[in-house]
Write a protein that binds this DNA or RNA. Structure first.
Lengths: 189, 189
DNA sequence: CGCCCATGTTACCGATCTGTAACGTCCGGA
DNA sequence: TCCGGACGTTACAGATCGGTAACATGGGCG
């Protein structure tokens, strides 16, 4: 997958020749299929975005009818998903590296982000959170921040504590929703 | 400032000629001063990082001896700081665009991130927050996520609600610290 | 077999990029 | 006035990149 190359050298730092070689083919075939490097990038991101679908499917399948458990599992799963190095973060990286507002990759990124937010809001709502959108946005930004922080300062920074931080946020929103759960579980420093 | 060009076209999308023209000089002078484009980038980021110093100075100066007020002002200020388009976000962008682990710019980014985290932890501690590091990391990741989200999906996404989300988090940590303040202030959708 | 079409290969174009060389220019200080 | 150092300008080298043209190859199918 070309995403590995993009991650290592940056999208602009990878030539079409390198992509073709990594894909086991050659440049001409790539151009016959995608027409341009920008379209190739967009298709790569579409495929990356699709990796989130089985993720949500497993969530519903492993905890059917228990949205609160799904929410907690969401936290755990996104944290461990490829050590937070893949998925949404690659899309954000692309958005950073391709600032042109009309780049085909940007529509992919925006659609993906909007879709993930909607799913997370729905999960929070079904879990009985009063301020579902507020919690979903908090968790979404926390996750995005964690992924970005990991990429900028390494895996030993604050991103390593994402699960604990997210769980604390969920606990406070659950408490505010009247559902008295165990809150304030603190982990060792 | 070359950061404007970097923001518009990406670091790798801006040639040294363009930087020189924007700086009102020419390429040779830039090379005579910085030696290479990578060093020029690093120096740009160092200067960008320095813009955070007067920010913290103003915080201490406007609310002397009131760390809790400084914490709330921190939230408000980082949200409005250049509409969240500058500062730390440029450093993160650079880290994304320059994946080489030994690039001189990466040390600048890591040092800046670590320094900002230490300052925020200190502020939370002085504000009487029990789990100061936990709150500081939550706020830091929230901010990072908000800046990144704004750059990837535009200013109308979840990043627009950063202040409300951060305030809610601070309130929950304040409540957990025993300081009974007004919590759960909700803003209109 | 003979055809077709997807793929592989090579070479190339034009543009752009980092970085350098050589030379002209100008200004401030002794 | 003279000199030195910083700056400006032009041209260029070497490399890489996106994208294209022309042609060879090979396998599936009638």
């Amino acid at each position: 997958m070309a995403q590995l190359l993009f991650r290592k050298h940056g999208i602009r730092g990878v030539g079409v020749d390198a992509i073709a070689e990594e894909a086991g083919t050659n440049k001409m075939t790539l151009y016959r299929h995608f027409g341009s490097k920008d379209e190739l990038i967009a298709e790569c991101l579409r495929e990356t975005a699709r990796t989130a679908d089985p993720f949500w499917r497993d969530l519903e399948q492993n905890f059917p009818g228990d949205p609160l458990a799904q929410l907690h599992e969401w936290v755990r799963a996104v944290a461990s998903y490829a050590s937070m190095e893949a998925g949404g973060c690659d899309l954000v990286t692309a958005a950073f590296e391709l600032p042109e507002p009309d780049h085909p990759a940007r529509q992919v990124v925006e659609a993906f982000k909007h879709e993930q937010r909607q799913k997370l809001v729905g999960l929070c709502r079904k879990a009985g959170i009063a301020e579902a959108e507020k919690l979903a946005d908090t968790l979404g930004l926390l996750l995005e921040g964690a992924r970005v922080n990991r990429r900028s300062v390494g895996p030993d920074g604050p991103s390593a504590r994402f699960v604990a931080l997210a769980e604390a946020v969920i606990a406070s929103f659950s408490a505010a929703s009247g559902k008295v759960e165990r809150v304030g579980e603190t982990e060792g420093a």
